[in-house]
């Protein structure tokens, strides 16, 4: 049997914290162009799974491959440079810098200390910042200090910071948490738009939102994959209804 070529491959991924297996033998394949949503009850190991992929936590066992590159033991910045970026659950932006500067820092040029000292704000950098700012609905707020943005705008800004590096895989942890209905719609639109030609793994609880964005859904429970498939099938799965959706 010939397997289709996947972008992200997780094989038998396990991490154990003092004997507690937060993620236990997870195998997961995400194709290029796919937007995968991970759902599951609290403590199911969703965030830990993202931590493992982006290198924040090192796995006890198993293998992570992205575009034929093994990420398992790489330091965080190397994983980012391989095209994998991560958005955190609470918006992680630089509060004292402007939206423009936040995006500029996220530009891949000048990533070493000396590179940063001699970094020049060239027109291609500025153009890219304007392009991304437009995409994330912040084009008019470039000179605003990031801490003055609304909660939803901060979430967008962080997504924009990820886009600056033109990543291949986006890992997004609850991107619409704390957003208004209108903002959720805009975010869904944004995600559909930016995930073209890329892959994404999104953790989300809002089922309406999940239905709008997901190509495929993976349900996690107690560190393991409980079910996987299109949203319509998942919603009918009796095991999923019991541990998660039924509540």
């Amino acid at each position: 049997m010939i397997y289709p070529h996947f972008a992200l491959e997780l094989e038998e991924l396990t991490v154990s914290f003092d004997g507690f297996k937060a993620v236990n033998g997870v195998t997961l394949y995400v194709s290029k162009d796919e937007l995968r949503v991970i759902i599951g009850p609290n403590g199911a190991g969703k965030t830990t799974l993202l931590d493992l992929i982006c290198g924040r936590t090192k796995p006890t066992d198993g293998k992570i491959t992205f575009m034929d590159k093994t990420l398992t033991r790489l330091p965080e910045q190397e994983i980012v440079r391989a095209g994998v970026v991560r958005k955190f659950q609470t918006p992680s932006i630089y509060p004292k810098l402007t939206v423009f500067e936040n995006l500029e820092i996220s530009h891949p040029k000048g990533r070493t200390a000396f590179g940063a000292i001699f970094f020049r704000r060239t027109s291609d950098v500025v153009d890219r910042i304007h392009e991304v700012a437009k995409e994330i609905y912040l084009a008019d707020l470039l000179e605003t200090e990031a801490e003055k943005l609304s909660h939803g705008q901060k979430q967008w800004l962080e997504i924009g910071m990820l886009l600056m590096a033109d990543p291949q895989l986006l890992l997004l942890d609850e991107p619409v948490a704390g957003m208004s209905v209108r903002e959720r719609e805009q975010t869904a639109e944004l995600l559909r738009r930016i995930c073209k030609g890329r892959s994404a793994v999104v953790i989300e609880h809002d089922m309406k939102f999940v239905r709008r964005i997901a190509d495929k859904v993976t349900v996690m429970h107690q560190g393991k994959v409980l079910a996987e498939g299109p949203m319509d099938d998942i919603e009918k799965d009796p095991r999923v209804v019991e541990v998660y959706l039924g509540h």
Partner: peptide
């Protein structure tokens, strides 16, 4: 952490 996960050492 944000700096680290923007690809900086």
């Amino acid at each position: 952490d944000r700096v680290r996960f923007s690809g900086y050492d």
